[in-house]
Design a protein around this nucleic acid. Sequence first.
DNA 1: AAGGGAACCAACCGCGTACGA
DNA 2: ATCGTACGCGGTTGGTTCCCT
Length: 317
Amino acid sequence: MGKAPCCDKHGVRRGAWTPEEDQALADYINKHGHGSWRTLPKHAGLLRCGKSCRLRWINYLRPGIKRGPFTNEEETTIIQLHAMLGNRWAAIASQLPGRTDNEIKNYWNTHLKKRVPRSLGEKHPCLIPDRNVQSNAPSTRHMVQWESARVEAETRLSIESTLHNSGSTTETCPDYFLKLWNSDVGQSFRMIKGKEELVSQSLVSQASASSLSSAKLDESCSDVSSQVKNTQSLTKLSTTPKLEVDNMNKEQNTSREQTISSYKPKLGDDRAGSDSGNYEFLDTSDSALKHLLHMPDDIEFLGHTDNFLNLLDGRYD
DNA sequence: AAGGGAACCAACCGCGTACGA
DNA sequence: ATCGTACGCGGTTGGTTCCCT
């Protein structure tokens, strides 16, 4: 399909914007709105292509743009969101009011990239807590909850994308992760992470005890459970074969309570497994994941347990 | 003080996608 | 259903500034 050039190269200015150009662009947009970017330069009397105008407006002139150094909180948010979303700068920027995707991208490439371990699976404290840290620290357990929800989402998306051989499901990843991020689980996770200043300060997992109450913990456990439910509604049923949907619905009624009850202790079980409860994707066996995801037993993971771990592992490659 | 390299950041480029004709 | 257009996004580039020798 032919793609029209974004602008006529002749007679179009390039390079740094002058204050006069900025003023003309801002004045025009403030007065008329940007409308069609393609025709805007002509109407605004600018010798720029529409694309250039759009970028200048979005990244520099738009009201509410926050300039200046990133705060520790912003740094932490970027690192955590990047761990979930990868280089989806626009999605990350949507969680940082006043910051543009371009700015975040630049900041990542120049400041943060070098500070975050290349191999997510090796060191990233967000995902692999220190094995030496007692997992009964509330913060660690909370991290487990958050990560469980996140991993669950990723697993489901991975499974569905293969089951239905549809590439479109990957589009929903950022949306879904952002929903998780903005959920109570994500919020609690951020709160604790902020307290510990895990990432922005030292990138070394402290996993220090925080003041999360047991009541809050229980609440968060049910949050995870509800996230599991929400996952099913969020992932579009239209992409799921009817038979599978029926099976899943049947399973839900009979096994949901069992699933949740068997799931909750895992989250809170301080001594579970050989890792003394330290988070290592918990039980990632197919059956456990199926159980967690309310999957019928006759649906195979087709090796996705490993696949999504590899996927996560390679996120920073 | 000057030169060279590194770091930073604004802007550009090309691709994918949504949407309307 | 197909095609053309516009837009948004992510990767990359290139100019400028900073820092070190």
